[in-house]
């Protein structure tokens, strides 16, 4: 089964990830927001074809965790293992330019990520009919779909998604779920924070509430520094403070 999928992928010119093993893992991770640890002692792993859904109340640190995994900020402690250039990140903001058309927006990201064809992505997210419309005239849900289409053109295996279904209607949510499923089937993986049930039966759910950093579970004290880099050398500032 896996082997045929890989065949498919190479025929389509998609970079393929032969290893069925773990492609993203976190080890005893502590992530911090503004110098304050928010999640602590978190470990998870994600193999090709898997999806992990992060749950937890607002303000718990889901966004911080996803930004850390995407490499936008350093982890306060612990390690993240992922092959280089394997993560595609999508957040609340879609990075769309309202002055540019749908095609222009998507082509830019496709070119940035090595120039893949955007037509399948448009088709997949049901945007073909809107291709020439300026992004400014799209509805919130349509913009969101365009933002998600960007994931397809990155051709990266690990999708890190922060609330991907915001402002999507039921139909679009189903479309998105189907897209994720197709991505998984092609050997990809997804890590997402979402509140709604996507109907992805194979999804594993990780409740982050259990990892809330507190002074009692051994999370590092906030030392008044920004995001820690774990390389403080012989400077025991944290111990002092």
């Amino acid at each position: 089964m896996v082997a045929t999928r890989i065949c498919d992928l190479s025929q389509r010119g998609v970079i393929h990830y032969t290893s069925p093993m773990t492609i993203l893992s976190a080890e005893n991770l502590t992530v911090a927001r503004g110098g304050v640890p928010v999640l602590h002692g978190l470990s998870f792993s994600l193999a090709a074809g898997q999806v992990l859904v992060l749950r937890g109340p607002n303000g718990l640190g889901k966004t911080t965790l996803l930004r850390t995994v995407a490499g936008l900020q350093p982890a306060m402690a612990g390690k993240i293992h992922a092959p280089e250039d394997s993560i595609a990140y999508a957040a609340h903001a879609d990075g769309l330019k309202s002055m540019l058309s749908v095609v222009e927006n998507l082509s830019f990201w496709a070119a940035t990520y090595g120039g893949s064809d955007i037509a399948p992505a448009l088709l997949q997210m049901n945007l073909t009919g809107l291709a020439q419309r300026p992004a400014a005239t799209l509805s919130a849900g349509q913009k969101r779909r365009l933002g998600l289409a960007r994931l397809l053109v990155t051709r990266r295996p690990v999708w890190v998604l922060d609330e991907p279904t915001v402002s999507l209607d039921t139909e679009s949510v189903a479309l998105f779920a189907q897209t994720v499923r197709a991505h998984l089937a092609q050997g990809g993986a997804a890590l997402m924070a979402t509140h709604i049930d996507l109907g992805l039966t194979e999804a594993r759910v990780l409740d982050l509430s259990a990892y809330r950093a507190s002074l009692h579970n051994g999370a590092a004290d906030p030392s008044g520094f920004g995001a820690g880099r774990g390389d403080h050398g012989d400077d025991d500032f944290g111990a002092f403070l």
């Binding site: 110098g35 304050v36 002074l215 004290d221 906030p222 030392s223 520094f225 002092f240 403070l241």
Partner: peptide, 14 residues
């Protein structure tokens, strides 16, 4: 002052 800030942050963590 950094220590003070740390103490405030710690309070927020409680």
């Amino acid at each position: 002052m950094r220590r003070l800030r740390a103490l405030q942050l710690r309070e927020r963590m409680q």
